[in-house]
Write a protein that binds this DNA or RNA. Sequence first.
DNA 1: TCTGGGGTCCTAGGACCC
DNA 2: TCTGGGGTCCTAGGACCC
Length: 420
Amino acid sequence: MFALADCNNFFASCERVFRPDLQGKPVIVLSNNDGCAVARSNEAKALGIKMGDPYFKIKALVEKNGVAVFSGNFPLYGDMSRRVQEVLRRFSPSVEQYSIDEAFLDFRGIQADFDVLAKRISAECYRCTGIPVSVGVAPTKTLAKVASKLCKQYPKLRGGCYMWRPQDVEKVLRRFPVADVWGIGRRSVPKLEAMGVHTAWDFTQLHENVVRKQFALPGFRTWQELRGIPCIEFEDYVDAKQSICVSRSFAHEITSVNELCSQVANFALSAVQKLRAQRSLCLEMAVFAFTNRFKDDAPQTRGSSLVTFQDGTSDHKAFVSAAVAATRELYRPGYGYKKAGVVVLKLAQEEDVTGSLFADSAAAERSSRLSAAMDSVNSAFGPGTLRFGIQGDGKVFAARDHQSPHYTTLWSDIPKVTVK
DNA sequence: TCTGGGGTCCTAGGACCC
DNA sequence: TCTGGGGTCCTAGGACCC
């Protein structure tokens, strides 16, 4: 058996842990730049606020109904996620963190009353972190996902659901929309509807050859999993990332090349930090920038530029220089840039890269010491404490009008308790 | 006025090899 | 008129996930 533990309305729940007054009230969390709603409490969902709704479009509705609004506080959510994972690890030696708010637990070879266990895991997560968690247990990961969705639908299940008998699975799948199945995306839904497939059960009744032909290997795996045959690997290890992307929209359009360089330099520095954390080197960096795609009446442009690093690098100075050079190359005057980013590609682990025979090893050594020094200063005193001049104040220009305190990630923001 | 950010895997087709 | 057979590697684009 596999379990899926899924945090309910995760970002909204994180904010609520520190604002108990918002219990039972509508809460939403906005994406970067206060752009879209990316998390909604049940009460906010009930008001008709959809995932990804632009904030400016729902603002009137939000104000009329007294919805609590938060700008995304991602360090907080990351820390709360870590705490939930810690609790989950008490229940299985093998935990796969699937996303910031979901984890699979491997129960293969374990005998237990899984219905009781699922409810206990949910209760323990809530007791230790304040986050409500839905725990589904089933013979495959895809069915465990279905089971955890049932928990959200039926509060009577008290956060835990065990589903395994074929007749029970059939009953559930017959009422489960195929569009809600893990692995069935929006592009496949119209195709399925045209074939008369509306529920997850309908999908399982298609002929194997039809599934393989129409939905290829990923679709076939989903089909198998729904039929109770596990074929998606359990991965309780973290692979080094194959690519790293840091990109942001800006609060206002950028027209000056220097300002654009400064923003992109900040993206590059944050990318190099992630790269170094996983002990990788990168052989290619791409920089891109584009205008506001929603503005139909304004001239549009999108540019990108590629830099290659012959011997691979994870050097701060090399990153800034490359990012600035690439930005200057793609920049075209007369346009208002709304979004830009840095992507590092062709990553390799440090120990797998053979250095060049003719490299200036003394210069490389100095540079690598400088990078190490920046790492240690910035990890002790916060990102951007030690930075390059081109980075300006080290901040990306973004709107965040509803920011909550960094309750658990900044000493100065720790909640105070007064005992009377 | 105002529209997020960050990933992975699979497949088809082209270029190349003998 | 008739034009082999068997591979590998790379890339772009599509689909999916949160």
